[in-house]
Simulated assay, not measured.
Amino acid sequence: MRRRALAAAILAAALPLSAQEAPMPGHRPAHPYVGLRVTQDGRVRHELLPNGRYVEARGPRERAYLGRYEVTGDHIDDRDDTGFTADGDFVDGVLHHGGMILYRR
């Protein structure tokens, strides 16, 4: 039993993020805002995954924040896995979020 758990952990660590957090069967289709957005200086990278999760990188920390998001119209609400919340709006495809401006990459 321990070998199976260890093998699963090793496999999960070796998979790219997109494969680790793939949508569950029957999950709603991807929202058109799914994808990567980056601040002009490249310091903050906020990726909306098709399964309703997001990954935010800050500087050299590739997975600084992980959480869930919900888009309603052009408005986005985020809740990271620690409970911190933020929101923002898409204006002409540009994300204005938490005091930052992030552009599609």
Results as ranks from 00 to 15, higher is better:
residue 38 V to P: 02
residue 52 G to V: 02
residue 85 T to R: 12
residue 103 Y to C: 04
residue 91 V to L: 08
residue 76 I to T: 03
residue 7 A to G: 15
residue 99 G to D: 05
residue 86 A to E: 03
residue 72 T to K: 14
residue 101 I to H: 01
residue 105 R to D: 11
residue 10 I to A: 12
residue 57 A to G: 06
residue 1 M to R: 02
residue 76 I to S: 00
residue 77 D to Q: 07
residue 72 T to R: 14
residue 87 D to P: 11
residue 12 A to W: 11
residue 38 V to A: 10
residue 70 E to L: 08
residue 40 Q to N: 06
residue 64 A to W: 07
residue 99 G to P: 04
residue 68 R to N: 13
residue 70 E to I: 00
residue 73 G to S: 13
residue 88 G to E: 00
residue 1 M to K: 10
residue 69 Y to Q: 09
residue 50 P to F: 05
residue 104 R to W: 13
residue 10 I to H: 09
residue 2 R to S: 15
residue 45 R to Q: 06
residue 79 R to Y: 02
residue 79 R to P: 06
residue 80 D to H: 11
residue 90 F to I: 06
residue 74 D to K: 07
residue 58 R to S: 03
residue 64 A to I: 04
residue 15 L to H: 12
residue 1 M to D: 12
residue 30 A to Q: 03
residue 14 A to Y: 08
residue 20 Q to K: 11
residue 27 H to N: 05
residue 35 G to H: 07
residue 23 P to W: 02
residue 7 A to D: 14
residue 74 D to A: 03
residue 50 P to W: 01
residue 26 G to K: 11
residue 15 L to N: 02
residue 64 A to N: 09
residue 33 Y to D: 13
residue 73 G to W: 00
residue 48 L to S: 01
residue 78 D to Q: 01
residue 81 D to H: 09
residue 22 A to F: 01
residue 41 D to R: 13
residue 61 R to N: 15
residue 91 V to P: 13
residue 69 Y to T: 00
residue 38 V to W: 00
residue 65 Y to E: 12
residue 6 L to W: 15
residue 14 A to M: 11
residue 21 E to T: 03
residue 73 G to D: 07
residue 42 G to A: 03
residue 101 I to F: 04
residue 84 F to T: 15
residue 22 A to H: 06
residue 42 G to S: 09
residue 4 R to S: 08
residue 4 R to Y: 04
